[in-house]
Amino acid sequence: MTIDEFLGALDALDASALALIASASTPAELELARNRVIGRKSGELGAIMKALPSLAPEERRGAGAAVNRVKSVIEAALALRASAVAAGGVIDSARDLTMPARRQWKGGRHPVTVVIEEVEEIFRELGFTTALGPEAETEWYNFSALNFPSDHPAMEMHDTLYLGDDTLLRTHTSPVQIRTMQRYPPPIRILAPGNVYRRDFFDASHAPMFAQIEGLAVDEGIGFVDLKATLTHFANRFFGATKTRFRPSYFPFTEPSAEMDVECRICHGSGCSSCKNTGWMEIFGSGMVHPRVLEAVGVDAERYTGWAFGMGPARAAMLRYGLPDIRLLYDSDMRFLEQIAG
C-alpha cells in the first residue's frame, strides 16, 4: 500500500465512522458502532493499521500521526454521542435543549462592498491608500483631461448622463486619477472605489449606476512589467492561484493598454455560457498612463511614468455568488441581503 492509499483509507474511515456514530440512537447501537470502528478484534481502524509495516520507514511516522488523529476524533464523537443517547435527547426534565437558540438580526455589508473591501485589503499590502472624488463631474475631468478625443467613436464606449452643458455624472472613476495627481506629488499609489453612471437600461447585466474601482500608481522607474506583476499578484490573491492573460486593448487615457482576464471560475477554461465559451473572464482594464494625461495635470511625463487599472466589483460579486442577474444587487430585497450580505 502506498502512503497516499493509506491516508485515503483513513479519510474514508473518518467520514464513514462519524456517520455511523451519529446514526446510533440507543446505547446498544452505539456499542456496535464502537466495535465496528475501533474494536480490538474486528475494528476497521485496526485493519487499516495492519498496512503500516508495508509503508516505507520514513513514511511511517506521518502515517502513525494520522492514525492517532483519526482515532481521537472518533473517540470524541463516541463520547459526545454516548451522553446524548443516555439522555434520550432531553437532558433536563424541565427544558428541552434541542429547542432553537434565541437569535439576533444579522447585519451585513452589501456584496459589492465586501468585494471592494477585499480588493482594498490586497492592494493595501502593496502600499495603496484610498482616494475619493465627486460623482457629478465636468467634461474636462471625465473626458478631456483623460485624453478622450472629442467627437470620436471612442466616446461611444461611454454613454453619458448629462446634468448640464459641461457637467455630467462621471462615467468612470478615472477622474479621481486627475484630481489626485492635481493635489499630491508622486509617488502616488491609490485605489479609488466609487459609483459611476452610464446611460444603460437596466437588464440582467447592465445597470445605469454601478461601482468601479480605479487604481493608479505614478513614480519614477515604474513600467508595464510592474502593472502586469501587480495585477497578476492581485488575481492570485483574490481568486486563488489562477491562470491569467493580458491582451491588447484601447483606452484613451492609457497607452499601452491591456485587458487582464482570469480563467473562467465556472468552467476552468473549457468554455461555458458564463464566459461566452472563451474560457476567460475579463477582470481589469489597464495600461500605462498616457503621457498626455500626465501633462494635463502638470506631471513631468519624461521623468515619471504611471500605470492605472479599473475593475467592476459588481461583476466580481456576481461571479463569486453565482448571481444570474445584476438587478439583484440593487433591489435591496431583504431575502437576498439576508443570504448574501457579509
Binding site: L126, G127, F128, T129, A131, T180, R183, Y184, P185, P186, P187, I188, R189, I190, A217, D219, I222, V225, D226, A229, T230, H233
Partner: peptide, 9 residues
C-alpha cells in the same frame, strides 16, 4: 513584483 515606494496620498 518589484519593490515600490509608498505614496504621498
Amino acid at each position: 513584483l518589484r519593490p515600490f515606494r509608498p505614496g504621498t496620498v
